[in-house]
């Protein structure tokens, strides 16, 4: 079964020199596609989680009394929202990476404690996080002051008001915009390519550099993979939005 499958794509490659689906019959290339896909998923999941945490914490910090705290948050947003993520990745890896401590497992090698994958996670999380702060802030601002006042009159502390009233309501308002931003984040993980993170785009390019005949098939793989990945994100977010919906509240 598997052999005839592989045989079929070998024949395709022989007859159509631009359609070499090499990963279907060459185990090494198949391994690259799979590991690239895993890296993309791993990077996406980690960045989604961290960027949402950054968004929640940042939005809470924007409500702080201290002008300095609010200034830091808005400076952070300006920097990460208004510069290209591509440049940010380069900056984190090459400029900041130079100052990170290293360790040596064998006395010879010097390995930085933050790898290029680590820097990609940090950089992309802060990039998407800047947008998430703005998204959550808009959600928080949509919660009427009078609702918070009612909680306050019932003896809720500020923290309880945030946790049980403001945050759950703000989240419901934020989900559609959050959905958009997380979709963008998953797609932006391809830019980690620039610091040689072996994600799907990186692996695809190495494959077609070795086998130019595999370029078209690799592009198909890229499109199909991202359509599927983003599709999962969108489906998940839509399901979440439906589950969070409260009768008579919001759209």
């Amino acid at each position: 079964m598997l052999e005839s499958f592989q045989e079929f794509f070998r024949t395709v490659a022989d007859n159509h020199p631009t359609w070499n689906f090499i990963f279907f019959y060459d185990e090494r290339q198949f391994g690259k596609v799979v590991s690239g896909l895993w890296m993309t998923i791993w990077l996406s999941v980690a960045c989604v989680i961290f960027s949402v945490i950054i968004g929640v914490v940042g939005a809470a910090m924007q409500g702080a009394q201290s002008k300095i705290v609010r200034g830091i948050v808005s400076g952070y947003i300006q920097f990460f929202r208004n510069t290209p993520p591509f440049v940010q990745l380069l900056f984190f890896y090459f400029a900041l990476g130079r100052f990170t401590p290293t360790y040596s497992p064998d006395g010879w090698l010097e390995i930085p404690i933050i790898s290029n994958v680590g820097w990609a996670m940090i950089s992309l999380s802060f990039f998407a996080g800047a947008f998430n702060v703005e998204i959550f802030r808009a959600g928080i601002e949509s919660v009427p002051k009078s609702t918070q006042e009612a909680a306050s009159a019932l003896g809720y502390t500020r923290l309880q008001i945030y946790r049980y009233i403001v945050f759950p309501l703000a989240l419901r308002v934020s989900i559609p915009s959050l959905n958009n931003n997380l979709v963008n984040l998953v797609k932006t993980t391809t830019q980690a390519f620039v610091i040689a993170v072996p994600e799907l785009l990186y692996e695809s390019i190495t494959i077609w550099n070795d086998f130019p005949s595999a370029q078209n098939p690799m592009m198909v793989v890229l499109f199909v993979s991202y359509l599927a990945l983003v599709g999962v994100v969108v489906l998940g977010m839509n399901k979440w939005e439906r589950e969070m919906r409260v009768p008579g509240y919001g759209g």
């Binding site: 009427p144 009159a153 309501l169 409260v246």
Partner: peptide, 19 residues
């Protein structure tokens, strides 16, 4: 908290928690 345990308040716009 001690004060708000003693004093209940009802508002013009109800201000229930919609969720």
């Amino acid at each position: 908290l001690e004060l708000r345990k003693k004093v209940g308040m009802v508002f013009q716009q109800y201000n229930l928690f919609p969720h």
